[in-house]
Amino acid sequence: MSGGAATGRESVRGAGRSALLAVLASNMLLDAVEVSVMLPAVAGMADDLGLSPWQGQWVMSGFALGFAAVLLAGRQVTARWGRRVPYLVALAVFAAASVVPLLTHDPALIVLSRIVKGACAALTAPVGLAILADAYPDGPERRRAVTVYTLFGAAGFTVGLLVSGTLSSVGWQWAFVFGAPIAVAVLLVAARVVPADTPQPRTPAPAGWWRSGGLARAAFGAAVLNGTYLAMLLLTALTLHGRGWPPWLVALAFLPACLPVALTTPFGGTLIERVGTGRLVVAGASAAAAGQVFAALPIPGGYATQTLPALVLVGLAFVLSFGALNTAATASVPAEARGAAVPVYQCAVQCGAVAMLVATAALATLRGFDDARILVAVVGCAGALTLVLSLIRSSARTPA
């Protein structure tokens, strides 16, 4: 056991450990909220500021861009300064960046604040999980703590939609700002309960870990799944706003695409054990592609006949495959390489979001929403087909 881990575990016990879990889980919830909080607000913001879909989407892709940019540097940061200092600094900067939309309506500064918040989340999310692992001994206690931490993260997307839908009905700025007092409250408690630690040098990963076909396959699948999912939700939010739907109703309309994920997260491990990661990945990618194709078809009617079935299918896709993709990514590399491999995988997930949001919104601006939906469907189908063929080739190379 490393000295830093021992120190952290010895200094956090009893009620202090419960308070630490509450801080880390609350922060994870806040980070996850920021992924979805813009969906009900982006159309109103674009209207007020005179932005096109391509310009408006940067408040979503900017967060993912900041997240991706800092993820790969996280290990170097903690190796130099430990975990406590970067964690607390990132929380403070996150809170400060959250109030920018109250101070200015300059779109560039608002997007910059979202990039900064994404960069902060890229530090607090993985560092928080590492602090949690140090504070709880391996075994049932740690598994329960990680389950709570994961549940808060899974619930964050749904909570972000509902909070944003409520606040954006008053003004879109409040969807940006509401995280500031929460981040300050978490920071004040974290300053008391996050244990001091000693910077630990990075353990070199074994040579060649990055050649893992399983890691590349999982990263590709997760990038396509996340990117097409967010792009489809962005187009849906803009479409519903154009039909006169208020933000709170837009938020409720998205629940079939996200609530099942939050409700089924505790059972993800059991599902993987019974079905297997490969089958779940293929089933999820196929469900996502089916939903995206359905959304692109010229079906007459409104939400109930076209949008709702598509959202149910993409929500099912996340239930089936996102946990399986995470598991496949970590299982495909040696244990000593996972510290280096997981940030690469997570970076790919965020890059998928940036690429698809930018491309989809650009096409929606230039050619219209119908062509943009077709793009999402084509990428989703191509991703599903690529995963199926890759898994078939991998199975064929595996000895019986």
Rank of each mutant, 00 (worst) to 15 (best):
V100M: 04
F176R: 07
Q350L: 03
R114W: 08
G380Q: 14
A121H: 12
V358C: 09
G14D: 15
R9C: 04
P246A: 15
S168P: 01
P137L: 13
S113A: 13
L391E: 07
L316E: 10
V99C: 10
R393Q: 10
T228P: 08
V184Y: 00
R13T: 08
V342D: 06
R367K: 15
I272A: 12
V99M: 13
Y136W: 05
L385F: 11
L313D: 14
F176E: 06
P309L: 11
I131S: 10
F318I: 02
L49Y: 14
L252I: 10
F254D: 05
W245T: 09
V193N: 01
F318R: 15
R84P: 03
T158A: 13
L132P: 00
G368K: 05
T7H: 06
V275L: 12
A384V: 02
S2D: 11
D48F: 02
V99Y: 15
V342G: 00
I374N: 04
Q55S: 09
A324Q: 02
A46W: 02
Q55E: 14
P247W: 15
I374D: 12
V77N: 05
A119Y: 01
R17M: 11
C351E: 09
S168K: 13
P86W: 14
W81L: 04
P256R: 10
G284R: 05
A108T: 15
S321K: 08
L88I: 10
Q306W: 11
L389M: 12
F63P: 13
T166G: 09
A251S: 09
